[in-house]
Design a protein around this nucleic acid. Structure first.
Length: 426
RNA sequence: GGAAAGGUGGCUGAGUGGUUUAAAGCAACGGUCUUGAAAACCGUCGUAGGUUUACGCCUACCGUGAGUUCGAAUCUCACCCUUUCCGCCA
C-alpha cells in the first residue's frame, strides 16, 4: 500500500505507474475524497474538544451542587453530538472509499525495472547450463511418472478433482527428498531460520501481504470462518512481524519454510491443464527476508542467488529473467523470475519468483523499525522468493534426467537424501 | 464443546463514573557530576490522525466492536485471544 501522503503529493507519478502496470484504476475521486475527509475530521475534532471542555465544567458544577447551571451546558453537548454523529458517518464513508483506492493501487516499480506492457518486455539477465541433447524420443513428465507408477493423476481426480495429483512410492519420496535438500541448503549454507507456520491464515494476514482485498478469487476460503488456505508461505512468514516495531540491529531477518500452497487458479482455465505445472495444491520452499530499507535491493540479489544455487546443485539448466512493469505482481517493486528448462515444452518455465516488495507490504502489515533509538518508526522492506517450487522441480528432474528406457537418473546432489539411489526405474 | 479467571504503554504493574492530562517502577535516551565508568540527581521517554511557516494546539486509542452517560480504562451487550480445569481427539 502506498501512503495517503505519498499519493496526495505524487499524483502524477502514481498515475504513470498505474499505466505502466496495465491498471485501469482511476484516481479521479481521490483528491476530492481526501479533502472531504480532512475537513470533516477537523470539524469533528473541534466539536469534540468543545464537548470535552463542557463536560469538565458540568462535572465541576455537579460537584458544587449547581445543577441548574449545568443543564443548558448538557443541552449544548447533546446538540453538538448530533452533528458529530453525522460527521463520523461521513468520515467513515470517505475513509472506506479512500482505503479501497489505496489498497488496490499496485506497488511502484523500481527504476531498474524495464517498462513494458507484458512478458515480451522482460529482460534476460543470464542463463546457466545447457539444455541436454537427447538422441531418443523424449517423453513429458506425465508419461514418465505414470509409466513408472510414481504419479497417479486419474485417481487424484477421483478423490478430489482436476488439478490435484497423487505421488506414490519413489515419487513421494523424491518430493520429500527435494524439500529436505532445499531446506538444508538454505538453513545450513545461506543462514535462514527454518519455520513451520500455519497453513491456514485469517484475512488480516492476507491483506498484509496484498492478496486481499483484490485477489480473493485466487484463494481457497474455509466455510463459516475467517480462515483461508495459504497460497504461499510468503503470507504467514512475512506476517510474523505484523503490527510490530522491530528493535535493534537485526536486519536482514532470513526465514525459510516448507509449506503446501493452495491456489484456486481462477481464470487460468485451459492453461497448463496437463501435468503438474499448475495445480490447486503444490509444495514449495519459500525464502523471506525482512530488510533494512537501505539494503533491500542488495538483499533481493542475495535471495535470488540463494534460489539459483538449488538449480545449480541439481544441475538443471535455467535462465534468470528481470520482469517488466507490465508483468510484475501487485505487491512487487522489482521481480526476478528463475525459469527452468523443460525438454517436453522445448522452453524455459518459471520455477521461482523473487520480489522486493519495498515498503508496500510493510505498510499494509504495519511492520516497522527505528533507524535510531527514539527515532520515528518507519516501514521495513520485505523480500520473498521461491527456493524453489518443489512440484515444478520434481517434474523438471523427470524430464531433464530421463533415459531412453523411461528411467530417471537421480541428480548426484540429491542421492544422499534417497539412501544413495541412482535411478528410478521399473 | 462446557466452566472459571484474565487481556492496561517496550516490560512489570496500580487504577470500580468526574485534576487520570493513565500512577509508580524497570528498561531506553539526553544532561549534571566524574580522568573514565558506575551510582546518584535532573530531564525526555507511546501510536495514529487533524491543524499550524513554526513553537505548539486539538482528537482518538487501556483486546475488538457496539451501547448507556453531560462525562467511561471503570457500567452493559456481543465477539476475539490467553491461562487453568472438564469433555472429545492425533
Amino acid at each position: 500500500m502506498l501512503s495517503v501522503d505519498f499519493v496526495r503529493n505524487n499524483l502524477e507519478t502514481v498515475k504513470e505507474s498505474l499505466k505502466s502496470r496495465n491498471s485501469t484504476l482511476s484516481l479521479e475521486s481521490f483528491e476530492n475524497l481526501d479533502k472531504e475527509r480532512r475537513s470533516a475530521i477537523t470539524e469533528r475534532d473541534n466539536l469534540k474538544a468543545k464537548c470535552n471542555r463542557l463536560s469538565e465544567e458540568i462535572g465541576a458544577l455537579m460537584k458544587a451542587k449547581q445543577k441548574e447551571i449545568a443543564t443548558p451546558k448538557q443541552q449544548k453537548v447533546a446538540t453538538a453530538k448530533i452533528r458529530i454523529k453525522e460527521l463520523e458517518q461521513l468520515i467513515e464513508e470517505t475513509e472506506a472509499k479512500l482505503s479501497n483506492i489505496l489498497l488496490t493501487i499496485p506497488n511502484l516499480p523500481h527504476e531498474s525495472v524495464p517498462l513494458g506492457a507484458n512478458e515480451h518486455a522482460n529482460k534476460e539477465i543470464h542463463s546457466w547450463g545447457n539444455p541436454r541433447q537427447f538422441d531418443f524420443e523424449i517423453k513429458d513428465h506425465i508419461d514418465l511418472g505414470t509409466n513408472l507408477g510414481i504419479l497417479d493423476q486419474a485417481r487424484a481426480a477421483k478423490i478430489t478433482g482436476a488439478r490435484f495429483s497423487i505421488l506414490r512410492g519413489l515419487g513421494a519420496r523424491l518430493e520429500r527428498a527435494l524439500i529436505n535438500f532445499m531446506l538444508d541448503i538454505h538453513t545450513k549454507e545461506h543462514g535462514y531460520q527454518e519455520v513451520l507456520p500455519p497453513f491456514i491464515v485469517n484475512s488480516a494476514t492476507l491483506q498484509g501481504t496484498g492478496q486481499l482485498p483484490k485477489f480473493a478469487d485466487d484463494l481457497f476460503k474455509l466455510e463459516k470462518s475467517d480462515y483461508w488456505l495459504i497460497p504461499t508461505a510468503e503470507v504467514p512468514l512475512t506476517n510474523i512481524y505484523r503490527d510490530e516495531i522491530l528493535e535493534g540491529d537485526i536486519f536482514p531477518i532470513n526465514l525459510t519454510a516448507y509449506t503446501p500452497c493452495f491456489r484456486s487458479e481462477a481464470g487460468s482455465y485451459g492453461k497448463d491443464v496437463r501435468g503438474l505445472i499448475r495445480q490447486h495444491q503444490f509444495d514449495k520452499v519459500e525464502l523471506v527476508k525482512i530488510s533494512h530499507p537501505d539494503k533491500s535491493y542488495e538483499d533481493l540479489e542475495t535471495l535470488t542467488k540463494d534460489a539459483e544455487v538449488i538449480l545449480q546443485r541439481l544441475e538443471l539448466p535455467y535462465r534468470l529473467i528481470l520482469l517488466s512493469t507490465g508483468d510484475m505482481g501487485f505487491s512487487a517493486s522489482k521481480t526476478y523470475d528463475l525459469e527452468v528448462w523443460l525438454p517436453s515444452q522445448n522452453t524455459y518455465r518459471e520455477i521461482s519468483s523473487c520480489s522486493n516488495c519495498h515498503d508496500f507490504q510493510a505498510r499494509r502489515a504495519q511492520i516497522r523499525f527505528r533507524r535510531s533509538s527514539g527515532g520515528k518508526p518507519e516501514p521495513v522492506h520485505t523480500i520473498n522468493g521461491s527456493g524453489l517450487a518443489v512440484g515444478r522441480t520434481w517434474l523438471a528432474i523427470l524430464e531433464n534426467y530421463q533415459e531412453a528406457d523411461g528411467s530417471i537418473t537421480i541428480p548426484k546432489a540429491l542421492r544422499p537424501y534417497l539412501d544413495g539411489l541412482e535411478k528410478i526405474q521399473l
